[in-house]
Design a binder for these strands. Sequence first.
DNA 1: GTTCTGGATGTTAGCGATAACCTAAAGCGC
DNA 2: GCGCTTTAGGTTATCGCTAACATCCAGAAC
Lengths: 354, 354
Amino acid sequence: MRATRRGQGGVTVQDVARAAGVSAMTVSRVVNGGHNVRESTRLAVVEAIDRLQYKPNPAARSLAVGEATQIGLLYANPSAAYLSQFLIGALAAARRAGCHLVLEPCEGESADEQAEATRQFAGADVQGVILPPPLCESEPVRTELAAAGIPSVAVAMGRHEAGTFNVRIDDFEAAAAMTRHLIDLGHRDIAFIRGHPNQVASAERHRGFVHAVEAAGLDPAAMRVEPGYFTYRSGLAATERLLRQRPRPTAIFAANDDMAAAAVGVAHRQGLHIPRDISIVGFDDVALATNVWPELTTVRQPIAQMAETAVAMLLARLRKRGGGDAAEGEELIVPHELVVRESTAPPPRDAAHR
Amino acid sequence: MRATRRGQGGVTVQDVARAAGVSAMTVSRVVNGGHNVRESTRLAVVEAIDRLQYKPNPAARSLAVGEATQIGLLYANPSAAYLSQFLIGALAAARRAGCHLVLEPCEGESADEQAEATRQFAGADVQGVILPPPLCESEPVRTELAAAGIPSVAVAMGRHEAGTFNVRIDDFEAAAAMTRHLIDLGHRDIAFIRGHPNQVASAERHRGFVHAVEAAGLDPAAMRVEPGYFTYRSGLAATERLLRQRPRPTAIFAANDDMAAAAVGVAHRQGLHIPRDISIVGFDDVALATNVWPELTTVRQPIAQMAETAVAMLLARLRKRGGGDAAEGEELIVPHELVVRESTAPPPRDAAHR
DNA sequence: GTTCTGGATGTTAGCGATAACCTAAAGCGC
DNA sequence: GCGCTTTAGGTTATCGCTAACATCCAGAAC
């Protein structure tokens, strides 16, 4: 008899089938949802499965179904903390589905570079692509994907657009909640540092801020707003401009944590105590938020979970191909959370002298 | 005729074989190293491959060879920046080999938690495990892996131990180089903030520091050394202790960037200008290093590349199983790089008054 | 010339799972 | 009771690739 190539004693459907007294096909049916299987049979199979500790072989499965095995992830250096969370979630979902994640870095802001990076995917036969911010809003990337006929799902694209797929939090509402937190503490002079002007999320966060200010009966026009780019450096510059003015704002709301961390740095250098002299808050809850002193009050986005959801949505979309080309798009909004740490407090009493 | 399940027109070995006028097996041989194939045949096949844009199907391959399809990665929240780089590298190598990466978080420092997390792998049939710091030095983890018979490769385990597999930089030499940089600038009073006492890398970096100090003819005993834990918070405490003393050190060498960033924060709060009044340097070159002002002079570890190498080493080791159980261990040292940014300068002239 | 040797290639038989098809019994309306 | 649909399950044929074995043939060895 020929030498068998049988691997290191992995349990297969056949083994389970034998143990449960059914055919391999029935086991397969049980594993994948169990339609058209009698309850008693199903139980017998399930019992056999965990008695033998059966784990389906993902390679065999994806070979058999001939489905997506590679999904792309185009990233452009958002904060490293963001990326690692994102990868963790995406990887978990990809593995569950038995498909590989193909990473493609896209440094460079030019349209050419972005298009070039996107084109890599077409050559690498990925069946779909996940787009974390900020690339989800890049025109060249989307054009190129459309040209190659590769479906994509965006994550944290600020606002829904018809025909696109997107997973995000409600930036507007989250920013409003954060603003209310500051107002509730007694702040009446809150400065806002905006995010990158090309990202819809920046505008949404700002809108949420304005909305909450108005809702509290305050005048939005009285609040100082500085431009920013979501980078540490831009936060530095914005805060310097703000703190040069008198009276100083009693609170600064930066549209992300990187800029908030920068604000903390500048405030410290000017001898201000946080939060006694000034409150500073961020947005995103990346690791950086707890790597400054004091730790930042911020808004947590469930990044890993969002990535997971996005992958699942992409796979669902790929599977549906053929059923109907339902290109109507889909949006999923996941819950956020206000995380109050140590960088916020009521405004100083002698606000007049500040 | 039965409906075929043939997927979306993917090119297969058969197609290539037909185009090149050879058998599928020959194509397979060419793709995998091409032993025992005549040069002329090889060229014909290669030509056909890239004319048809053939990409081997990884699922089919790993099903056929019955090889490792899952390799584990046990992580314990090192800095997020470290993790994302690590994942990028590991993922690239895993995909090339057609195998999946199974992530397992291991929060918690207790032996029980670590053992428990490790045990997850045994149940998930991963064939090998990659261990980034600090878990690569965890006794419970290693015991548990050994018990389950799962081979592992460590990354950045500070020093080589017989019988283990490891990829790292030369922490000793890197720390010495950094110290020489400070000495060359004119510093004679350099404080050192150590890393976590349980990690060998901490000791190595400190040894490198001491060695360079001695080599320059200075007295190591005169240099202040503070304990630390590689965390931002511990860096904060250590720096506060250091800067309370007079005379202040003219330079602080923190054993990683997180602690160096903390040192920058404390120095700023005390009104010191960096690098004019004091130089501060870190180690690792994670993203945080450029997210403080001024950007940190530090040592770059090629993290992604190290992870890639580790995965490759692990796979080689798994394949070799059966040939010989060569348990002699292996170590690979990759080059590091001193990155001089803006946080270092010559010591202040009036050092006497500091 | 014959046998041996080893390199270059083809052939066959899986790897583990599932799609598509088939079968047998049960349910159902009339 | 008869055909018809539905349900529960088995059979068979792949998916794409490669290990193991078989074959062929040129040159070496005798």
